[in-house]
Simulated assay, not measured.
Amino acid sequence: MQLGEVTLRSEREGESAVRSRIRLWLDADSAARTVNAPVDPPADPSPGLGTGLPVPHARAATVMEAARALVTGSRADRRRVRVLLACVVAAERPAWFAELCLLADALVVGEHPSADRWSPEERRLVVGWVAVLLELSGEAGVERLVDALVRRGSDAGNDRRNPG
């Protein structure tokens, strides 16, 4: 099977081309590192998630508040943070930030259990905030965001009956 066939099949199944390409890269990288090594499938602690992280349902506003708190509480250079935050709300994002947003959407936001209930503008803003966390802290920033959302688990917006 060739890359084009996989991409077309993934698009028919509802996945974006970006997400399917990233998964192909990750699968190829993983296969290259584990040739002939038996691999057990990872346990998925949260139904419907492919991340392997225990991400609770949450409103977009809750996710943005948690991300904002992490960004503003970080020790990153203030000028750099201001540039990144301007990109979050910009109507037209710079190309480098737009590419970062593609990764944030495909690898993090697209896997959130409540993302399909958010409006397009809410999703766009959450993607921007996650992109800032990725730029400032990488995977550790995403893990801190998940931890912050778990701590906010008693928030009514995280209730599985009202996950919007």
Results as ranks from 00 to 15, higher is better:
2 Q>L: 12
79 R>E: 14
123 R>K: 15
51 T>I: 06
146 V>T: 14
84 L>N: 09
141 G>D: 10
51 T>L: 13
55 V>N: 00
37 A>L: 15
103 L>R: 13
103 L>K: 14
23 R>A: 07
55 V>K: 02
124 R>E: 13
133 L>Y: 09
26 L>F: 09
129 W>P: 01
116 D>G: 08
29 D>G: 14
123 R>D: 06
42 P>Y: 08
161 R>M: 06
91 A>K: 14
32 A>D: 12
139 E>K: 11
94 P>A: 15
114 S>G: 04
145 L>H: 04
141 G>T: 07
146 V>N: 03
87 C>S: 14
136 L>E: 05
100 L>E: 03
37 A>G: 03
105 D>W: 03
53 L>V: 07
64 M>T: 07
65 E>Y: 01
71 V>H: 03
111 E>P: 00
54 P>V: 08
3 L>Q: 15
93 R>W: 02
40 D>H: 08
157 G>K: 08
30 S>I: 09
161 R>F: 12
103 L>C: 06
143 E>C: 12
7 T>Q: 09
119 S>R: 06
10 S>L: 13
164 G>L: 01
25 W>F: 08
124 R>V: 11
117 R>A: 10
90 A>S: 15
16 S>E: 09
52 G>N: 02
154 S>F: 07
11 E>H: 09
6 V>S: 13
10 S>H: 05
108 V>Q: 02
22 I>Q: 11
112 H>P: 06
108 V>T: 05
133 L>C: 13
139 E>R: 14
88 V>W: 08
59 R>T: 02
34 T>D: 03
92 E>A: 10
76 A>Q: 04
115 A>D: 00
164 G>E: 02
110 G>A: 10
31 A>W: 03
97 F>R: 00
145 L>R: 01
138 G>I: 03
143 E>K: 13
138 G>D: 02
160 R>H: 06
151 R>Y: 00
82 R>H: 04
91 A>R: 11
3 L>A: 07
157 G>V: 04
133 L>R: 01
53 L>Q: 07
64 M>L: 10
127 V>D: 05
132 V>F: 00
95 A>G: 13
31 A>H: 10
136 L>Y: 01
129 W>I: 00
147 D>I: 10
58 A>H: 05
7 T>D: 13
8 L>K: 13
9 R>V: 07
148 A>S: 15
23 R>V: 10
127 V>K: 05
31 A>T: 10
42 P>K: 06
5 E>T: 10
130 V>G: 00
141 G>C: 11
103 L>S: 11
35 V>Q: 14
144 R>L: 15
6 V>T: 12
158 N>Q: 15
146 V>L: 08
22 I>G: 08
89 V>F: 10
76 A>Y: 06
73 G>E: 09
149 L>Y: 03
6 V>I: 15
7 T>S: 06
23 R>Y: 08
129 W>N: 09
14 G>C: 03
109 V>L: 01
67 A>Q: 05
46 S>W: 03
65 E>W: 04
32 A>S: 14
148 A>D: 01
45 P>K: 04
160 R>S: 05
73 G>M: 05
46 S>T: 12
54 P>D: 13
23 R>N: 12
76 A>N: 01
20 S>W: 03
124 R>G: 12
44 D>N: 02
33 R>T: 13
75 R>W: 06
124 R>N: 10
111 E>W: 01
66 A>R: 11
